[in-house]
Design a protein around this nucleic acid. Structure first.
Lengths: 272, 272
DNA sequence: TATAACTTATCGTATATCGATAAAACATCA
DNA sequence: TGATGTTTTATCGATATACGATAAGTTATA
């Protein structure tokens, strides 16, 4: 008997049980379902058998059967023929790879990130903003770091990260605050800035000085300094940041050593 | 007028024009089409408008419309509202991220790769085998390297890479040679091993000595040494390799310095 | 050995997807 | 400026496609 957090088995009525409004004639629901199946796998559920797929995704057994079959045929799932359990394959990396190869932002940023990484010998990241979160798009690890938790594709809340605040600071203020308001804010560490007015102040300060900082706001002992990358219309399309351990730099040292470097790099990547 | 390599517009008859046999009652064709749309984007086509999507994927305009709409709604595509052009979003990194988080192989390998990377100060990779290709799953860059061409998700032909040969060497010989035969072999560089019998010899030698090497077989000035990671049944489920520049090491030095290290690491990650 | 849980295969039905078409928006050029 | 062609957006009826119930087959459990 498997104990799965089958969020809420919708006991499927006839209509598409996907999310809410099924009345979008251009929406191909099968695609959403396929992705639902794929994202059922993760740290919590590295492998799933058929009925687990059904219960985790809230689909009936037949649908689970059809979609696992389809995704296996397409090569995104692998089925162990003796345990009958499914798992994701390395082919799932293809999509992200396509993105990486096609992104003009990544293309422009890459050499600068590389240079920054060698120059500073610290961890350097490229992130983008999606909704209320930042996504790590590219990452150059410093030799000092042994944090294997943050990798390409990792998401973090924008409000408590330097890149997040850096990007928000270049959005129209109402939009930035709309994102803040949408965020599920909580105090991850004792030094997390999470209150609305404090965040507004931080955003304004960041806009004025051109870079954002975050000291132990999400992870303890993590310090970060970031600057926004702007597109040709002046809108933020990403951020560069340098992340170091608090044990090795004081707040002042981080700013003194990296602020102008990070601002210059972000500016060079921008195409305002 | 856009000149796109619309491979062959199948001039769609009624039946599912996906690939070949459409007579698989469990196959959900819409899923395949969705992925077809997503993989239309890449280095060649960083952005596409609606009709280009249609011609590149070989779908009619209505389907292109439906699938771009769907994928945009799901967040994998972004549509620039003034140019009406689509591009992939960073959300495409999610799937690969799920894979990364769920893979037991990655989980086991990570600390060893890290250690190897610090120990040697060279580029270290984890790869898996898919059909005739290896896929880069994890990668620790050395400071020396400025090759931004190989990234996570990159594929290379197995037959002319050290990790590829390392994995093939632990497959039953007929299976290994079946893969060799399926491969589209060509002489990428003057030193590419590409002939069937030469490859067979190489595979046998690799099996005997426990590690594989490749010197400028795919990229010029690239040297690589790899060992296979075995699962509990002794089947290869991946490979670790160290890649260096030929200008910095001779063939003998590579072997002398790294062979036992790479074999030991691969063995430690294995679970025979 | 009996029972339960799960996987695989089959099939009639209804609906979600298809693809043609038309309207609207946009671009190009005489 | 208006005419012409291209691309995008919206609509809709037909039916192939995906649905989901169920049965048969397989593996695990007691």
């Amino acid at each position: 008997m498997t104990t799965l957090d089958e969020s809420k088995a919708p006991k499927g009525k006839r209509s598409g049980n996907a999310g809410e409004k099924s009345d979008d004639p251009l929406m191909v629901m099968s695609v959403e379902k396929a992705f639902r199946v794929l994202s059922a796998f993760g740290r919590q559920h590295p492998t799933l058998n058929l009925s687990q797929v059904a219960s985790v995704t809230g689909m009936d057994i037949s649908s689970a059967q059809r979609f696992t079959h389809t995704l296996t045929k397409l090569g995104y799932l692998h089925k162990d023929s003796e345990t009958k359990r499914f798992e994701l394959t390395a082919k799932t990396l293809d999509l992200g790879h396509h993105f990486f190869r096609s992104s003009r932002l990544v293309d422009r940023a890459m050499p600068y990130l590389m240079h920054l990484s060698k120059e500073t010998e610290e961890t350097v990241n490229l992130t983008t903003l999606e909704e209320t979160e930042i996504i790590f798009v590219s990452r150059f690890l410093s030799r000092h770091v042994l944090n294997t938790d943050v990798i390409i594709g990792t998401r973090m809340p924008a409000y408590c990260t330097a890149p997040g605040i850096a990007m928000l600071s270049r959005l129209p203020e109402d939009q930035a605050m709309a994102i803040i308001d949408k965020s599920d804010r909580k105090q991850h560490t004792p030094s997390t800035t999470w209150q609305r007015d404090a965040l507004l102040a931080k955003i304004r300060e960041t806009r004025a000085q051109g870079y954002a900082t975050a000291f132990e706001e999400f992870y303890l002992s993590d310090a970060s300094i970031a600057a926004p990358i702007l597109d040709h219309r002046g809108r933020p399309e990403g951020a560069v940041n340098i992340a170091v351990s608090c044990s090795r730099y004081s707040r002042e040292e981080v700013i003194a050593r990296f602020s102008s470097l990070i601002v210059a790099t972000a500016h060079a990547i921008s195409r305002v």
